[in-house]
Structures are given as C-alpha cells and as structure tokens.
Amino acid sequence: MLLCQATLAHSALLMQSNKPSEFAKRWLAEINFSTVLSAVIAIGIAYGLLLAIDNFTDWISERVPRRFRLLTKQGLPFLRAFVLLVSIVYVSNLFLNLSARNLFALTGTLAVALGFAFKDYVSSIIAGVVGLYEVPYRVGDRVRIGETYGEITDYGLRRVQIRTPSDSLVSVPHSKIWTEPIINANSGDLEAQVVTNFYFSHAVDVAQTRQILCQTAYSSKYTRLDLPVVVIAQERPWGTQFKLKAYPMDARDEFLYQTDLIQRAKQYFADHAFEYPQSGYLQGPEGGAAVGE
C-alpha cells in the first residue's frame, strides 16, 4: 500500500513538474499514424469478432440438438472475455509503456480513480469476472435474482440479460451476486423442475387427484418421461393444495408446459366435477387463481 502511494505521489509530482516531456516519455509510447491505424484496426477486429461470436453462438446453439444447446451458449462469456482482454492489452500496449513499474503505478491510479467515480460499474465488472469462475448462473439458466425471474439470454461484461415470462428483457448487474441470493433452477442443465399448483376443496379424493395429476404430466407432450413425476398434497385453511412436480424436455418451455398441464387437468376436472375451494377463502400469498401458480 505504501509502495503504491509512493508511486502515485511520484507520478503526481512528475505531472506537476515543468517536464511534461519526461512524463510523456515515461508513460506514453511513440504515437504516429501507424500506431493509431493499428489501434483502430484492432478495435474494429475486436468489435467484429464480438459480433461474430455473438451471432455464431446464437445461430449454432439453435441448430444443434437440444441437449447441446446450453453447452454451446455457455462458452460465450469466456470467448467474449478473451477477445476483450486481448484487445485491451494490445491497444494499451500500442499507446502506453507498460513496464512493470508503470503497470503498477497505473493500476494504483486507476484503482483510486475508479474507486471514487465508477465504484458500482467496476464492482459489476469484477463480479462478472468472478461469476465466470464461480458460475452462479450461465447463459440459458432459469434464475431468480431479487424480484426478477426468467431465462438468462446474454452474459455481458457488466450485466446479464434475463427474459421474463412476459417476454421483457431485464438487465441485472453482476454486482447483485455480492448481495442477493441467486436461485438457479437448472444450473447449466437442460432440465429444470416445474412446479404447478392445483387447489381443491377439503372434500377432494386425494388419491384419485394424485393419480390424475400424474397422468396429466405423463400425457403432456413436453414432459421429460425418464425423470420423476411427483405429486405432493398439503392441507391449507381454505382447501387442499397439490403440487405437481415434473420436468419438461426443454427448460425453455417452462411456461408453455405449465399451461399445457393446467389445460389438460382443468378439462378433466371440469368433466368430472371436481370441487374447487370457495373463492372467498382464496386470499393471501397462497391465493389467486383456483388452479395453477
């Protein structure tokens, strides 16, 4: 720390002194037309590469078999980070003398400057880099961060983009991983358990209802048949709640899957006059629609 402060102080002295050429000589490399052109070309190539990587990853991930889709998408942040890192190092090296001493001083200066001016921004970037290794979420995962739930569609330098069930895109800064719990439904796998709630009156035949709900899941075209289907019943003051837990073949179909389950089940229950709870009792956090969540 002391060394850092000393270096910073020394740099400041250099800047204040009447020897700008000495400062420039120490920090800046020789800048000419060729250097500027190289930098512009490097930035152009990096930009083009980033666009190409984004588009190619999107294109290929929608064409490979479903089981490889997430695997394909999950390489995207690493490729992006690699291109950015190489470009930044290359361009910095064109304009700056990046000796060990200078690098040390520069880091200190940047740390102080960014620490005051762009604290949150830098925090998000660092969290994004940490996230690459800790992997609390990946592209294609279905996560809940704070109040936001949906599929991660993009992993940027500073933020992730989440597509919500209402098809809105929400940007969430990576820095949330410092403070918020991250609830990840599938953690890189294609399968994510979907829980669908059904509500009935206390008089319902629990065994029969469980059987019907199991059949509901097994008859849905979306169900991953080789994974377990479970029905859990819970007693509530207003009636009996059933949770149908099953896996769709593709986590992306989560909401279509729930809709299909509810549609099939409601049709059957209507045909066979199953009794729902009286609406007056359905208040509070567990209330809402008679069927579904």
Partner: peptide, 9 residues
C-alpha cells in the same frame, strides 16, 4: 436420431 438427441424417450 434427431428425436433421441432432443431428449425424447
């Protein structure tokens, strides 16, 4: 092959 690759049983 296609359906197997796409997680159909």
């Amino acid at each position: 092959d296609r359906l197997r690759q796409n997680n159909f049983v």
